[in-house]
Design a protein around this nucleic acid. Structure first.
Lengths: 356, 356
DNA sequence: ATTTCGTTCTGTAGTGGTAAAATTATTTCT
DNA sequence: AGAAATAATTTTACCACTACAGAACGAAAT
């Protein structure tokens, strides 16, 4: 047998440095492995372990520098103590703020968070979702999925086994647990603020017609203007392309009776308009008031500082985790269809002023 | 094939997550469990499985909707196929850009990424690091650790078992694999640019003296000014507090011979100065040139658009993963002390102009 | 026909842990 | 003191999977 073994040098280097196991502790503390398990998981309340033994095990664990093996544990218990956060690129502020909230809330629990990136391209997303499934995550938070196919993909893969929370999903959805901002209310608050300032001609420039956050925001816009008996015809859809966004502004300002206030579908758009209006020789806020939506960190430092509607992404991320944990506690909760609404907040800075 | 009955193979959900296992496939395909393992892991090249058997297993797996259990696999193989990314808050753009690169590069491999948050508070970080250790991650990327204690904590926990890559560590470090930007070169490039524009009085406002990124950047600043035979005395340290940053600007501009160009330790500071200089009635860039450092996404849209030094965080994140994977391939590499330097790039926009 | 060989597959024994039943040790009660 | 009750451990089994030795089989070589 050992006469002609191929001399591969993988004899010991191939094996990963094997860490300390419960068996090692058991040997040192002169107890059985399950005893170690009971002690280290603090199940001695219900099982009963002599104090002396307990301390001996603890001491042995400390001495050997033992770290629990969450993987092995997960195999047996069927719970990986891992949550998945599926979203687009991490350097988009909306999703990173939500993610920050997720980490906030996950901290202090035993859950770790795995980050997966969605692409809105169904074949790549399919792989990501499978990858996620193979990890046996206990719960899933999905943020920022524009594509209906991804939604369906995720649903098919995980429902009803794995609880899912939809964080600010882009469209309406008649199933699952959803955490959403009160976009309608947020926008109508913004309109009311402008109306109070005496504005009569108010425009709203949104993203893609009929899709995403624009829909409820336009609804809020129209609702508030109707309530104030004002013209709600100044809605423009732009597809988020910078040229089209700029074109929309130029078109509005070239109107015989141009708007005295412009609401933007996003903060990014509002920042662009601040610059663009300056280029047009308009003073914000004295000639035109501008408001954004979202309250990105940077809009507090624009010039003028942007008035906007704060969407509490961070808190929403926290809530998503809370919901998930509740569903893990009580599987019955997973079956319910729930929508949790988060209030937005009017943030008034210097880009809004009384109508000229 | 497509006429398979929609019969659910496992009993009603009395048990929590009873997913399909290899045993189920083995039963259906009438082979043993190891055979299934060989087929599904595509080890048939070296083991040898008849094509008919292989297809039968594959078909059975498809029919049952099998998903590999990465956890169980990890327990046996000792590799979790998971990387950890330790950093501060995810909504800091620097770290989220690096994280984006990490995800870019991890995609397409079998590795998933777990995100842990560091706090620069040693007791909380200690818990995080332990948590991370329990997950048996295969490799670790650490970004943005200001505190030396965290560095030491991580080192003690994981070295030399688990390969670590330090992504833009804040201080010098004589061990481990480090991925760093060429701060010195970046700053001296910036100075050279200003010198070419005819500036003679150039100031640099940095963060905390002797700590972090300010150190190499000041070095680059001094080096370039010396080379140009210019005064390098206009260095100010501010501790990153907004009032102190502003105070530094006022102090500089009140000088008998105020600087005609100001280099900032960060983009955020530069944006603040843009606003502050406008308030002082100065025109940027005609009266004063301003440059940032980092190239945050938003500085392209400031007014004027900020000239800055791009730090390729995304690419650095990618490199960190590549380094980690290389170390996992060849454990010998983990022992080396390596520094990988990434070139910065001068990004010239509209906040710099010839000296008045 | 026997040996040799290679392919294809299975049996067995892990991996590190947990759960529950079974066993042993220690009290308590009569 | 002996039985019963209780506490403290251990034994056994299992989780889903992988590694490896070796068995079963047929084909080629002798």
């Amino acid at each position: 047998m050992s006469t002609s073994s191929p001399s591969t040098p993988n004899a010991d280097s191939n094996k990963r440095a094997d860490s300390v196991t419960m068996s090692d502790i058991a040997r040192l503390a002169k107890v059985s492995r399950p005893t170690v398990s009971i002690v280290l998981n603090e199940r001695h309340e219900s099982i009963g372990i002599a104090e002396g033994t307990r301390l001996r095990v603890l001491e042995a664990a400390r001495e050997l520098g033992y770290r629990r093996n969450a993987l092995a544990r997960a195999v047996k218990t069927g719970r990986s103590l891992t949550l998945a956060f599926l979203a687009g690129d991490p350097d988009i502020e909306y999703s990173s703020r939500a993610f920050s909230g997720v980490l906030d809330e996950a901290e202090g629990t035993d859950y770790a968070v795995q980050r997966f990136r969605l692409h809105d391209k169904s074949d790549e997303d399919c792989k990501v979702v499978q990858h996620c499934a193979e990890r046996r995550v206990d719960g899933i938070i999905v943020n920022d999925t524009g594509l209906a196919t991804a939604t369906e993909l995720i649903r098919r893969e995980f429902e009803p086994q794995v609880p899912i929370v939809w964080l600010d999903p882009k469209g309406p959805q008649d199933w699952g647990v959803q955490v959403r901002p009160r976009d309608i209310k947020g926008m109508s608050d913004a309109v009311e603020h402008l109306v109070e300032l005496g504005h009569q001609r108010i425009a709203f420039v949104a993203g893609i017609e009929g899709v995403g956050t624009g829909v409820p925001r336009v609804k809020g816009f129209r609702r508030a203007l109707e309530a104030a008996n004002l013209d709600d015809s100044l809605v423009r859809w732009t597809h988020w392309e910078e040229e089209k966004i700029t074109a929309a502004l130029h078109e509005l300002m070239a109107l015989p009776e141009p708007p005295t206030a412009i609401l933007c579908g996003s903060d990014a758009m509002a920042l662009l308009y601040l610059r663009e209006l300056r280029a047009l020789g308009k003073n914000v806020p004295h000639d035109v008031s501008v408001m954004g939506f979202g309250d990105l960190a940077r809009v507090a430092h624009s010039d003028p500082a942007l008035s906007t509607v704060r969407v509490p992404y961070n808190e929403m991320g926290r809530e998503a985790v809370r919901q998930l944990l509740a569903m893990l506690e009580d599987p019955e909760m997973s079956r319910e269809h729930r929508e949790i609404w988060f209030p937005t907040e009017l943030v008034l800075r210097n880009s809004t002023a009384p109508a000229p």
